[in-house]
Design a binder for these strands. Structure first.
Lengths: 201, 201
DNA sequence: GTCTATATGAAGATAGAC
DNA sequence: GTCTATCTTCATATAGAC
């Protein structure tokens, strides 16, 4: 590992702090309601300084999403390395992790319909590469689970994938948590509805 | 039925047109990205005229939501009047209807985290009354379906209710539709994931 | 790179004539 | 009630000194 020059380490640390704040704000109020003033305030620097590190508000959100996807990769590695987990078990572990992240207030939820943001993300090659990487690893587990007969044959892999992504930012979690239920309980319930469905088995 | 004075009929028609436009815009881009200029433009009147009918942007959104809830009541009546539907069948019919509305581009989705809007809605007694009315009717069907043994005993009624509401604005629908799949197919898939779950039965 | 101060533009809401 | 024109606020982004 080559050591970076000290000045670059400082810069990196500052940018991490910025992305931390962005991540928190995105999780708490979403992209549209997050303001650059708030970000600067949380980090404790001037708003203009933000723009020395990131070109735009969209770039900030992209940075948070890229970090999240990077962490997802790490988590996928960890899950893949676990013993005694079949494909379905791995998918459940992934969903469990995303729900834990969300309940911890660390899931940057990008309200799904913002054109400027969507355009910026789709034009960001690093982001797209990370997203596809995660999607493909999940897809391979989905296919394996279907081959095992563990996943419903009625639902195509594509639909399973989107459903897993959707559960990662499911607003039901926040509502139940606000209702006073402990995190573990909330996760158990939503895991049950996701994998077993509402109907009795 | 007492006839309203002509002038009031005109006013009513105009307000319906306004709420139509708001409903469409809320479904298409959400509350935060909808602007009063757009609403006025869609209706074909001046922005200032909007404010002669509705006090604020929040009031516009509330009007759209109230009309939706009113329509939901009508739909619940219709479903309740159908022959040969047990409680679970009724719940499925409700979800089917909400998904149809969403795919038709008529589901005003209020991004779940907007404090000014949430506050306005919670302070709107008419809205709250309608919301509670719908919630209670759904809850009674949920309880009945659970008594039938048709719903999973692992999931409390409260969780079922929130899940049904969440499916009404599930972004997965739009993604699948954008993927080129016909509406019926999309609905079948999401109905299957909602009630039967992702795991094989 | 960090700051203060400011440019620029967008959007909610209003004034006042008709 | 409808319009045009305007007010006000606020948020993204930038200028320019240090």
């Amino acid at each position: 590992m080559a050591r970076l020059p000290f000045s670059q380490q400082v810069r990196q640390a500052r940018e991490d702090a910025i992305v931390d704040a962005v991540n928190r704000l995105l999780a708490g109020k979403g992209f549209d309601l997050m303001t650059m003033d708030e970000v600067a305030g949380e980090v404790g620097i001037a708003k203009a300084s933000l723009y020395k590190h990131f070109d735009s508000k969209e770039a900030l959100a992209a940075a948070a999403m890229k970090r999240l996807l990077g962490r997802a990769e790490v988590e996928l590695d960890r899950i893949a390395a676990r013993d005694g987990l079949d494909a379905l078990g791995r998918l459940k572990a992934v969903v469990h992790w995303t729900m834990t992240v969300q309940l911890a207030g660390e899931m940057p939820s990008l309200p799904s319909q913002n054109s400027s943001l969507r355009a910026a993300l789709m034009a960001d090659m690093d982001y797209m590469t990370l997203l596809m990487g995660v999607s493909e690893r999940l897809s391979s587990w989905i296919l394996a689970a279907q081959a095992d007969g563990a996943l419903s044959p009625k639902v195509p892999p594509e639909v399973v994938l989107y459903t897993l992504f959707a559960r990662a930012c499911d607003p039901v979690l926040a509502v139940l948590k606000a209702g006073g239920h402990p995190d573990d309980q909330v996760i158990d319930w939503v895991m049950a509805t996701t994998f077993d469905g509402l109907s009795a088995r």
